[in-house]
């Protein structure tokens, strides 16, 4: 049986103050799949994403990305494979210029300069911002920042793209172009945590419902979204 892109087994995590955030999470995502993580606030969606690249470490459970187990030693390797885009792009754009922010990942990996330039160019083109390389990240609009934030992660050529609330705060036009962008990423394994059910319907054939730190449903979006009782029970709307 070939390894899945993401394998999470029995993951449990509590915050230092004792609050339980994740209970016995098990999830398997195949290469190229597009999965939505939905659930009410506080369900543990962001927490789960932060485990995927080892920013949070669980006491119980195992995580494997493309067959590589997540351990202290493989952190660097895993982070090259899992591209995590945070909810607030201001937290992700910390270089003065767009170019530098997008180049950070490849530079940290020690890639040669011309490779770095090529990757930055490709990443910016992929998000439709190839003319923005010399702009100041700080001055961009929210929609532009979100795309740049995505580019900062794409430049690392990740096997998995994990996005935390990608459409939050975006006006309808920016939202539209973001959805188009994500749709255009052929073959990319996607894990999207979102409240935006319409985005979920458009982008993700599979939906995982998280509530109170546990997975309460995992199945085809088309089916689950028709179950209004289920949705309501877990603080969701059909959208």
């Amino acid at each position: 049986m070939c390894p899945a892109m993401i394998e999470i087994e029995g993951l449990s995590f509590s915050y230092p103050d004792g609050q339980r955030a994740l209970s016995d999470i098990s999830l398997r995502v195949e290469a190229g799949e597009r999965v939505a993580l939905v659930g009410p606030n506080g369900a543990g969606k962001s927490t789960l994403l932060l485990h995927l690249n080892g920013i949070l470490r669980a006491a119980d459970g195992a995580i494997r990305v493309a067959g590589v187990a997540l351990t202290d030693r493989t952190l660097g390797q895993i982070r090259a494979m899992v591209g995590l885009v945070f909810q607030n792009p201001d937290d992700q754009l910390f270089s003065p210029r767009v170019f530098e922010d997008v180049a950070f990942g490849p530079l940290h990996m020690g890639l040669p300069e011309d490779e770095v330039r090529a990757r930055v160019e490709r990443a910016l083109t992929a998000v439709g911002m190839s003319t923005y390389a010399d702009r100041m990240s700080y001055h961009l609009s929210l929609g532009e920042k979100k795309r740049i934030a995505l580019a900062t992660v794409l430049s690392m050529n990740p096997r998995v793209l994990a996005l935390d609330e990608p459409s939050s705060g975006l006006d309808p036009r920016a939202r539209r172009s973001l959805i188009r962008l994500l749709q255009g990423l052929d073959g990319q394994t996607l894990l999207i945590a979102s409240h935006d059910m319409r985005l979920v319907r458009e982008l993700c054939p599979r939906m995982v419902i998280l509530d109170g730190g546990a997975i309460v449903a995992d199945g085809p979006t088309e089916t689950l979204i028709e179950d209004s009782a289920l949705l309501e029970q877990h603080g969701l709307e059909r959208g």
């Binding site: 270089s95 003065p96 210029r97 100041m136």
Partner: peptide, 8 residues
């Protein structure tokens, strides 16, 4: 300071 100088 370099960041601030470039941005604001």
């Amino acid at each position: 300071l370099a960041f601030v100088r470039q941005t604001r």
